[in-house]
Design a protein around this nucleic acid. Sequence first.
RNA 1: GCGCCCGUAGCUCAACCGGAUAGAGCACCUGCCUUCUAAGCAGGGGGUUGCAGGUUCGACUCCUGCCGGGCGCGCCA
Length: 585
Amino acid sequence: MSLIDKLNEIVGSAFTACGLSAELGTVRVSDRPDLAQFQCNGAMAAAKQAKKNPRAVAEEVAAGLSGDPLFSKIEIAGPGFINLNITDEALAKHLMGIAIDDRCGVAPLAQGETVVLDYGGPNIAKAMHVGHLRASIIGDTLRRVLSFCGYKTLGDVHMGDWGTQIGMVISEMAMRHPEWPYFDPAFTGPYPEQSPFDMAELEAVYPAAAKVCKEDESRMEQARQATVELQNGRPGYRALWRHIVDVSIVSMKANFAALNVHFDLWKGEADVHDLIAPMADDLKAKGFAVIDDGALVVPVRNNDDSKEIPPLILYKRDGAVMYGTTDLATLVERMNLYKPSKIVYVVDQRQNLHFEQVFRAARLSGIAPADVELTFAGFGTMNGPDGKPFKTREGGILRLEDLIAMGRDKALARLDEAELAQDATPEERRAIAHMVGVAAIKFADLQNQRQVDYVFDLDRLTSFEGKTGPYILYQAVRIKSLLRKAGEGAAPSSLTLQDGDRKLALLMIELPEVLATVVRNYTPHVLCDYMYRLAQEFSSFYGNCHILSETDERLKRSRLQICRMALSQLELTTGLLGIDVPERM
RNA sequence: GCGCCCGUAGCUCAACCGGAUAGAGCACCUGCCUUCUAAGCAGGGGGUUGCAGGUUCGACUCCUGCCGGGCGCGCCA
């Protein structure tokens, strides 16, 4: 049980003893550390309800607490804050419990309920760019945190592989290479196993195709036609599509591997194609789907809506399906295959309305029963310094792999400049630089609140100083180095807490509540904030206390134990962000 | 037009369910490498939380109006 939970129990029952609700006894870390370690604000809320004097209520509750030897201080302050300190002995005892726990004192929150997370969402045939960074790493972090907290998690990359953009690429390829067998209706196969193009060529085709379709309506019409034919199973198109998917996946995997982003499922929109027709028939039969203006749609408007909600389109007039169709069918599939208790979509905030439509259609039709939590965890757009979606100076997109290379090269330069890890092999140095560069990029992004837009600043994204990923790594590396020098020492039987380390000790009890918040609100930045405070508090401790040179053996062992605990938490939490810690840097 | 989001230090961002003196980083200023990695530490200046009301013991937080910005709104994703 976390220390906060324990305090909640104790203070909660003190409230109960006064005839008040236990919930009022919620304790939290004090936001005035100069006054107390913990605080409870429940007396003021209770007084409001019962129309009593808040200080009197607080006095009564405090009197009930006064016999508990856990507390070294119980005070009433201001309008009725109950301020609490616990004894160093109690704190030390609790910490020793955390020290021997490989979960750093965090009890699981769930019992293996399944959660499907939908993140990443790269489109095939396109180079991954900086816009995919947030979608990937926020989703992956949430997956890791939920998994650690006891959920069975399934991360699905959910590629965009079935929409009109593929029709654009196919029709553009038909223009460029009419001789390919994929375009010959008389061809009876088999089609070549080897793709006639590589990723570099594919990437070049897409923007050209998109441009020409935008400018030329007849080309757009061809693209739509190709999309329908692909979806309806034209063999040559399907074979070509398979190449596009395979070539794209190789490239995606390289990017995700570099970022240490993991997926359990490599599914795409196309995977649910065979579920669409039966789903549509069923929705039609039950009256949820109707023909409107030539399209088959699911009206999702409610009478009490204050805004216009357009229907979800299942089949366009031309017979092609849209992403709303595949999203709904994907829900059918996920319910059938995984029976999840939650499905979380980590998607660009601008798709808010779209998912509102999908969720409504799913609830309405019973595809997603009421007890399944559907969450749209939208993230903000990455803007340039001008406030508009980020573009490079040349006006183009910045490729993800180029960004990662920039981070790595900057870290490599830093290693040279500071003459660090000189005896390491070039490969090791490169590996360290990669870890540092990726840590910088990921932490810089994840520390932003998920929902809001943020400004993309290359210098800040690859900065190594201050509130950055490398700062976190640096503190962990210092501890590792310290512990190597200290050698194997027996763990102390108890901790000796002093002014230099008490703040750090107190901080380390907060991890369970931090992770609970991340899970509740799907907000990785709360974890980043904790990690930074932890690293900072350690750094302060490290700078102000001698550890190896401490002559009081008992104190030295206690401090080394604090170091080990800080390292455990840093390694656990960096792991939850998918950030690797080098041995030195 | 309707809807959603945002406006906090020079810049970029935090602030838990309404709590005490609104916190960090960058930038700027002052100290600290003959003690465990200076990618660091200790300290300093910097605020009418867009504006105006309201709710209450208490408002960055909730409500109303206004100003400013972003995004979305039927056959792209």
